[in-house]
Simulated scan of single mutants.
Amino acid sequence: MKLRIEHSTTYRYACPVALQPHRLMLFPRQSHDLNVLATSLRCTPEPRLDWAQDVFGNVVATASFADQSDTLTIAVEMTVEQCAPAWPVFQIAPGAHSYPFTYSDEDVMDLGGLLTPQHPDENGALARWARGFIYGVPTDTLSLLKDINSGIIGAVAYRTRDEEGTQSPLETLAEASGSCRDIAALFIDAVRHLGFGARAVSGYLFDPDVPEGDVGSTHAWAEVYLPSAGWIAFDPTHGKVGSAELVPTAVGRCNGQIMPVTGGYTGGPADFVGMDVRVSVTQV
């Protein structure tokens, strides 16, 4: 399946302001089931671009601006080929088929902070909630993860949330609602409390059921590491497992590390007028 992705962000200011460097994580992560065919980046005003890879291997562009401006537009266009199967079969190591299992010493060392919950868990409430999905010991590892992934839908309703940042998992459970990044953060900390290595993912979702012409959006989900199978995608917002219809751009320990565009300006709060984000993901 070949997909075309268009993503533009426009910032508007009341007067020309000095633009601070902006960190861009917008380009797809090529893998065995995602082939990046073409990419382009356009910024107005034109910046100096410095390219690097972060500790997770994400492609990061830093845009530095010499001139002041009352608008900033960052636009990318990408064409990718997504070939992940809709019904994947995961080759999990025999020793990890049943939960609980123990990661090897090497895996524990490499996973590091991806094993540690990010948010405080007052009185162990989140850990108890996660353990509620364990109906017996031992139990099937993949079935347990799928139960948590689909069970979140029954506890949390999706809602668009324009505020910056990510809710804590306990806030998401208390509110019984959250954005895709909030729902992904809940899943990640829940499975970390059960001893799994998990990481946050940002990118795009292709939804074939959306009518042609509707705008798309960026998306957030999670991945869990299982021996031999590697990183398995879990999208708790939609209750799906596997990478089909997902286009990852960045992975990290938490959502705050993988925001598509981060940056600022020199000036007062009243100088900022607004921001427009447009995303389109279409099959070609």
Results as ranks from 00 to 15, higher is better:
118 Q>K: 08
118 Q>P: 00
120 P>Q: 06
122 E>Y: 00
123 N>W: 00
124 G>I: 13
124 G>Y: 07
124 G>C: 14
124 G>R: 04
126 L>F: 09
127 A>P: 04
127 A>Y: 01
128 R>N: 03
132 G>M: 10
132 G>S: 11
133 F>H: 05
134 I>C: 03
137 V>P: 02
137 V>T: 15
138 P>L: 14
138 P>S: 11
139 T>D: 08
140 D>P: 06
141 T>Q: 01
141 T>V: 02
142 L>S: 03
144 L>S: 05
146 K>W: 06
146 K>Y: 04
146 K>M: 15
148 I>H: 07
148 I>F: 06
149 N>V: 00
149 N>Y: 02
149 N>S: 01
150 S>M: 12
150 S>L: 11
150 S>D: 10
150 S>C: 07
151 G>I: 08
151 G>M: 14
152 I>L: 01
152 I>S: 07
152 I>M: 04
154 G>F: 07
155 A>K: 12
157 A>M: 06
157 A>I: 06
157 A>P: 01
157 A>Y: 06
160 T>L: 12
160 T>C: 09
161 R>E: 14
162 D>A: 15
163 E>H: 07
165 G>H: 00
165 G>M: 06
166 T>P: 02
167 Q>Y: 00
167 Q>H: 07
169 P>S: 10
171 E>M: 11
171 E>A: 12
171 E>F: 01
172 T>K: 07
173 L>M: 10
173 L>Y: 13
174 A>N: 15
175 E>F: 14
177 S>F: 03
177 S>R: 08
178 G>Q: 09
180 C>D: 08
180 C>N: 05
181 R>F: 02
181 R>G: 02
184 A>S: 14
185 A>L: 13
187 F>E: 08
187 F>W: 02
188 I>Y: 03
188 I>M: 13
191 V>H: 11
192 R>P: 07
193 H>I: 13
193 H>C: 14
193 H>D: 09
193 H>P: 10
193 H>Y: 11
194 L>D: 05
195 G>E: 13
196 F>A: 07
196 F>G: 12
196 F>S: 10
196 F>W: 09
198 A>C: 14
199 R>P: 08
203 G>F: 06
204 Y>H: 09
209 D>F: 11
213 G>M: 02
214 D>F: 09
214 D>G: 11
214 D>V: 14
214 D>A: 13
214 D>C: 15
215 V>I: 09
218 T>L: 01
218 T>I: 00
219 H>T: 10
220 A>W: 02
222 A>Y: 01
224 V>D: 04
225 Y>F: 05
225 Y>M: 03
226 L>G: 04
227 P>W: 07
228 S>T: 10
229 A>T: 11
230 G>Q: 12
232 I>Y: 00
232 I>M: 03
233 A>H: 10
233 A>T: 12
234 F>E: 01
